[in-house]
Design a protein around this nucleic acid. Sequence first.
DNA 1: TTTTGGTGAATGATGATTCATTCAAGAGGG
DNA 2: CCCTCTTGAATGAATCATCATTCACCAAAA
Lengths: 209, 209
Amino acid sequence: MVRRGSRGKGAEKRERILRAAIKIFSHKGFFNSKISDIARSAGVADGTIYLYFKNKDDLLISLFEEKMAEVVADVRGRVAAGNGALSRLKIFIENHMSLLVREAGLIEVLQVELRQSNKFMKEYVPVKFLEYLDVITEILELGKREGTFRQDLNVRMARRAVFGALDEIALAYVLSRKRKYDPADAAAEIYRMFSEGLCTKAQNREGRT
Amino acid sequence: MVRRGSRGKGAEKRERILRAAIKIFSHKGFFNSKISDIARSAGVADGTIYLYFKNKDDLLISLFEEKMAEVVADVRGRVAAGNGALSRLKIFIENHMSLLVREAGLIEVLQVELRQSNKFMKEYVPVKFLEYLDVITEILELGKREGTFRQDLNVRMARRAVFGALDEIALAYVLSRKRKYDPADAAAEIYRMFSEGLCTKAQNREGRT
DNA sequence: TTTTGGTGAATGATGATTCATTCAAGAGGG
DNA sequence: CCCTCTTGAATGAATCATCATTCACCAAAA
């Protein structure tokens, strides 16, 4: 018997299906993607997908949660390396933009399907996505403690604003075939917009990195 | 014979269908909405919808374009009343957040379906949405001319950042049943984040409204 | 031989779209 | 003023294609 845990051949096949799902969903969107497309792309039979996932919805949600978990763990590690809130914010923004290149398909799926699922799959709470937002929250709170950021900054609002700006720019990048700008430049620009907007006046008057 | 131009009973019926579509799409999402749902809600027969719209996709797109055209014309008028880029930016942000209350259904549809359509309906270019972004662009360019905003501000990027921040916060508002915050407060917060981030240092050192 | 993962054709539901038919209202003739 | 007649809007039941999901069966491993 082949076990289907986190180790062994089963896990490998499951992973193949997830990768294929990312590819197909990112090309056609969830509703236009057929299970048989995904199966073909993964090199398995249609029915096999149902051995690993409850149904099509479950496939999408598993994809969100598992891949986002990796992204969150990864960015947490990177951010921790920065010292000070500004440095960490910079790392976070740069990492997000570089995901566009490293994990293009995944980001495309997240961007167009997350909202849908978020809104219409009643029982689904995007836990891992919220954790991603938490990483921003932690940076902002650190900044307030440090005195780098305004004391009256509304953290809940600011983290949405930061994520929203990143996400929208990422979306523009993904949608434009022409790839009009460089993600690294975009990161620098966004960082500047927010750091100069979030810093105390004292910080603004002095020179900053 | 009843004509179906922009005047007369035909237009009224068409409008009823559009309003019903907004209601149903915003509740269930495009793919989960049945034409028969919309027909019932509009008080017409299924087939009637095909007298006014080519197909389901066309219904969604017409909805985008026509309703966004109204929103764009409206915000243009309001923004023109402000003098100076900062004042205009403030008006734009406040108007966007107040749309959440005035046009809740429409905004919900735009937020979750626009990305989808944008990405997957190959021929569709969201003209009216781009015009909405142009309103921001014009404000930013005015600010640069005036000297209120940094000369090296990347307008294309900044307008996406502004829209993205607004959109994300609007989304959080729409998704949370609990209505955790007041759109007017949110507008003030966002305005502050961007104005302090976009202004030249000279502006920052002096007092501002 | 038994067990289990894997298969993919068959099933059944769903829902967009069509189209034969109905209906209402104006036109014109007597 | 009344009675056809014509026209096209409106209807909604029927059609038809499309998949998600199931399940009877197969092959390899134990």
